[in-house]
Amino acid sequence: MGQTENITLTVNDEQVTESVPVRLNLVDFLRNNLGLTGSHVGCEHGVCGACTLEVDGVMVRGCLMLAVQADGSSITTIEGLGENQRAADLQDAFKRNNSLQCGYCTPGMMASALEYVETIRNPDRDAIREHLSGNYCRCTGYQSIVDAVLEVVEERAKR
């Protein structure tokens, strides 16, 4: 397995120290070393978006980052979002609109959708579609996902 390095990072508010091979992807580290299997691997070259997760407040592709690069960082995965209520309204909107079928793209899609409702907030279908274009979904045809994101953008604007 070649060279290994020790890394220390915060994952979903828990501190983790592990020795990892330098070639190990971040998403494989989360899935295989930490058992956080909510992040999915769809293409391993940064195209499909299934492994999208948050590193130091920025949405990144877990397959394009090495675990050693995450040393010292703070990571939130879909499991973390499930518990910290930050995305509770988005989750409800996804359920209401049936914005997921097989669920494989959903963790990454939720991450990108959350980024949209937190930072872009434009209640425009085309802008939402543009933003989600880095996340492939083969089941829904995207419309119900756009519906859900738009609903949350509009609800949050009223708050």
Partner: peptide, 10 residues
Amino acid sequence: EAQRLIEGRG
């Protein structure tokens, strides 16, 4: 089952 999938518990 949507809730489970949305929370990454698939």
